[in-house]
Each structure stands twice: as structure tokens, then as C-alpha cells.
Design a protein around this nucleic acid. Structure first.
Length: 203
DNA sequence: CGAATGATATACT
DNA sequence: GTATATCATTCGA
């Protein structure tokens, strides 16, 4: 079941980040469909969050999409190398977003490996937000894509993530954000269950 | 551990 | 309009 607009427009980015764990991210390009279970997400809480691109109400050509209503993709290029995929939340005018940091491949894994530029012999190496976007075929030119459309969307497969397996902790790679970097806005599924998927249970 | 890599923001002329 | 510092990272030593 595809998540509806109301999932994204809640006035609680951190809650949305928490609820995204166990949801299924799906992308389609042409006749190729790939999907993966979200296992790690970070909240970026709008203008009050020093780690956010929209901190202090900054608004530029790049960040404009963060000010849209919830339910669109915010994708941008980091380090000149990686496209990072975010989900915009909250209502219009409030630049809240959730960064999807990690997924567990669910379908189309062979296509993901091809997109990574690896030969058949190699596996998916390295997990991180850059790899998520590359494996899923998400490019920063797709920033602003509506998640209720048929290119990128998120489904609820009835997967429940037991709260004991969810770790909340400080975010990664945002040391420059001073005290805001220590906020427990990062949620991820316990490492052991991430590896074999056994931490997930069906409803 | 450290280089790669390029769009973007900001500070200039 | 042009220059340059900056990055929510990754991969190969």
C-alpha cells in the first residue's frame, strides 16, 4: 500500500523519520522497478536545525523544494559525487526533511548491482546514503519528484520494527552543526537485524 | 588514512 | 559575471 499524503504532512519530522523504518522505498525507471526496506533515517528539523540546509530560513534554488508540502523528494549532490535522497515532510513553508541513509534490498537487486557499476561477480559494497541513491537509480535532477506519483514512492508492507531494535542516536557527518549534531534525530535498525533482516516481522 | 569530485552558495569585480 | 571555499560521502591504500 502506497503511503498517502497525510503520512508526510504530519507536524513531527522526528516521528516521520522513526516511522519510515521498515517502510519500503520503490523506484521505477522505464520498466525496471527496484525496492528496499528503509533501515536508517535521519530527521532534519527545518529552520531551527543547524545541520539543515534551510537553517535560519535560508531559501535558495536548491533548498526551495524543502519548503514544499510533505511528500516530495529532495535530492541533492554531496561532495560532487553522491546524490542524497530526502523525503520532505510537514506542510508548505516549513522546510522539514528526512534523509534516508540505508536500505535493505528487497527486489531488483541485480539491477542495483548494475547501477553500482559492478560486474556480476561483485556484491553491493558499502552502505550509506550515497549508495542508496545510486542503487535505486535516484539522481539529483529528480529533486522535487512527488512521492505520490509513479517514479519514486514509499509503500507500507505491514512490516513492524520492534522498538527495542530501533536505535536513536546522533547524526552522522554533521559535526559542523555544533550542539545540533548531538540531537538524537537518527534512527536505525539494530545492526544484527540489518544484516540478515531477521529483526523484521510481518503484521 | 586521504584523495576524488562537481554543484552550490557566497563573496567578490 | 566570475572565483573559490564548502560539503548530510565513498573507496582504495
Amino acid at each position: 500500500m502506497k503511503l498517502g499524503r497525510e503520512f508526510y504532512t504530519r507536524d513531527d519530522v522526528v516521528g516521520v523519520a522513526r516511522d519510515l523504518l521498515g517502510k519500503v522505498l520503490v523506484t521505477r525507471s522505464g520498466n525496471i522497478t527496484t525496492s528496499g526496506i528503509i533501515t536508517e533515517a535521519e530527521a532534519y528539523a527545518g529552520i531551527a536545525d543547524r545541520a539543515s540546509h534551510a537553517y535560519g530560513g535560508r531559501r535558495t534554488a536548491r533548498t526551495a523544494v524543502m519548503y514544499s508540502r510533505g511528500g516530495v523528494a529532495y535530492v541533492y549532490l554531496c561532495y560532487g559525487v553522491h546524490s542524497l535522497f530526502n523525503v520532505v515532510t510537514n506542510r508548505q513553508g516549513i522546510p522539514d526533511a528526512v534523509l534516508v541513509r540505508s536500505i535493505l534490498p528487497l527486489s531488483g537487486e541485480d539491477h542495483m548491482i548494475k547501477r553500482m557499476g559492478y560486474g556480476d561477480g561483485k556484491k553491493l559494497t558499502g552502505i550509506g546514503p550515497g549508495v542508496v541513491s545510486r542503487a535505486m537509480g535516484i539522481h539529483f535532477s529528480q529533486s522535487g519528484t512527488d512521492l505520490l506519483g509513479d517514479t519514486i514512492w514509499i509503500e507500507d508492507h505491514g512490516i513492524r520494527v520492534p522498538s527495542r531494535l530501533i536505535m536513536a542516536g546522533p547524526r552522522v557527518g554533521v559535526e559542523y552543526a555544533a550542539a545540533d549534531a548531538l540531537l538524537p534525530y537518527r534512527f536505525r535498525v539494530d545492526h544484527n537485524s540489518f544484516r540478515d533482516g531477521s529483526g523484521f516481522s510481518r503484521q
